[in-house]
Simulated scan of single mutants.
Amino acid sequence: MPEIKRPVKPIEVNYVCDQCGHGMMKSVAAMDPDTGVVPHKCMICGVERDFKWVSYPKIDYIGIDETPH
């Protein structure tokens, strides 16, 4: 199948802390290559949480005519 191209714009994606409901989670170490676990810490309350295969904050891309949800 041939390539197709379309204009996109970058958007920042954050994860709001489940504990305090206000702070953003930030990765604090590299991903473990064996398990895919990425340790994170809330920037407000300091709670720690692991995510698998994702590191926050991250950048996603959406079409120019799309709205983020």
Rank of each mutant, 00 (worst) to 15 (best):
Lys26Pro: 05
Lys52Trp: 06
Val28Cys: 01
Pro33Ile: 00
Ser55Met: 15
Gly21Phe: 03
Cys42Val: 07
Lys26Phe: 10
Lys52Ala: 12
Gln19Trp: 12
Glu48His: 05
Thr35Gln: 01
Lys26Asp: 06
Pro39Thr: 12
Val38Ile: 14
Ser27Cys: 04
Val28Gly: 07
Ile44Lys: 15
Val28Glu: 06
Pro57Thr: 03
Ser27Lys: 02
Ile62Arg: 14
Asp18Lys: 10
Val28Tyr: 00
Val16Thr: 07
Lys26Gly: 03
Lys58Met: 14
Val54Trp: 14
Cys20Ile: 09
Asp60Lys: 15
Ile44Leu: 15
Ala29Lys: 02
Ile59Lys: 07
Ser27Phe: 02
Gly23Met: 13
Ser55Pro: 14
Gly36Lys: 02
Glu48Tyr: 03
Gly63Asn: 04
Cys45Thr: 13
Ile44Phe: 13
Pro33Ser: 09
Asp60Glu: 15
Gln19Phe: 10
Pro33Tyr: 02
Ser27Pro: 00
Asp34Gln: 07
Lys58Trp: 14
His22Gly: 06
His22Ile: 12
Gly63Met: 04
Val28Gln: 07
Val37Gln: 03
His40Glu: 04
Arg49Gly: 09
Ser27Thr: 00
Asp32Leu: 02
Gly36Thr: 05
Arg49Asp: 09
Ile62Tyr: 13
Gly63Tyr: 10
Ala30Arg: 03
Arg49Lys: 14
Lys58Arg: 15
Asp18Trp: 00
Cys42Ile: 10
Tyr61Leu: 09
Arg49Cys: 10
Cys17Met: 10
Cys42Gln: 10
Lys58Ser: 09
Ala30Gln: 01
